[in-house]
Simulated scan of single mutants.
Amino acid sequence: MPILMLIEYFRATMQQWSFQKRNVAAEAKRTLTPWAETIIQANKNACNNWMVYPISNSRFVVKSFTHKSVVVDFQQRTCTCSRWQIDGLPCGHVIKVLTMSRYKDCSEFDFKAYFIETLRKNYEESVNPLPSPLESKIPGDLMIVKPPMMEMRQPGRPRNIDRILSQGERPIWQECSTCGKFRQTRSDCTSRGSRSGISQATVHIQR
Rank of each mutant, 00 (worst) to 15 (best):
C47G: 04
H93W: 02
E108P: 06
S82N: 11
P2Y: 09
D141H: 14
N45T: 08
V70I: 07
S69L: 09
L165M: 13
E125N: 02
R186T: 11
C189T: 05
S196F: 09
T178S: 12
A28F: 02
L130A: 15
R83Q: 14
M149Q: 09
E135D: 15
S187A: 14
C106W: 13
M150T: 15
V70S: 03
L4I: 12
V52E: 00
G92C: 05
K96W: 01
Q184F: 01
K68T: 14
C91Q: 00
A113T: 14
Y123L: 04
T178K: 12
D73W: 00
I40N: 01
F115A: 03
I164H: 06
Q15W: 05
E169N: 05
H67A: 11
M5E: 13
Q85K: 07
S18R: 10
I144C: 05
K63H: 10
I116C: 04
R207D: 08
S82T: 13
K146L: 07
D110S: 15
R207S: 09
L32Q: 01
T185F: 06
D73P: 02
T190R: 15
L130M: 15
A28M: 03
A12H: 08
H67Q: 14
Q154L: 15
P148A: 08
G140K: 12
A113M: 13
S101E: 15
P139E: 10
P139L: 09
R159S: 10
Y103Q: 11
M143S: 11
E8H: 10
V24P: 02
I55D: 03
I39W: 00
I116Q: 00
C81P: 03
R120K: 15
N45E: 10
P131C: 06
